[in-house]
Amino acid sequence: MSQEPFNPPVSPEGLPALEAVPLTPVSPRFAPYRVLGTMLFWMPLAVAVALLPVGPELPWPVRAALGGAVLLVGVGVAVLAAIEARRRAFGLRQEDVIYSSGLLVRRTTILPVCRIQHVETVSGPLERLFGLVRLTCFTAGGSSADLVMAGLRSETADRLRQHLLHRIREGSTADGPPTDDNP
């Protein structure tokens, strides 16, 4: 036999229910961060469309209207990004980490702690401006199985990282999850 599968009798009613886990929203600063990040991409694009000679010679009002249209799309995307950011949430159970994201398509990813190989925290300049950190949990399954938790406050991310590293070291020994400091 190449691999002995783990197959104890399981009662579906007795299992810890994923849907019953209360999730904690990410930092409220994540929404303005997403708005600013989106606008920093779209505003230069709108200015470029309005000022640069693209295609045939167009009169100024037409160019300004084109730039305005691009800006309007950017504002729309930014609003959607802000709404999506407010709906992001995470949860921590004894044996796994849960992260929920998405607006039209909601994604809830669950990563068992025993599968985490190492943990990394990253923050870009804009994220540091808002005191935010991204926490990435790496698995042996490559990028498709890694979990990226964006929008965490740096204190929360640090405590979460410490907790996960402790759990990885200790295996499956009992340890209380860190409390979240989101207001």
Partner: peptide, 29 residues
């Protein structure tokens, strides 16, 4: 085997939520 799974994802589009459906992603290594 289910024990080979590294991560689990439950995905629901707007239409799937209305119909009580979901897409399940099981990720072995």
């Amino acid at each position: 085997p289910l024990i080979n799974v590294q991560a689990v994802e439950v995905r629901q589009s707007w239409f799937q939520r209305r119909r009580g459906l979901a897409t399940l992603l099981l990720t072995p290594a």
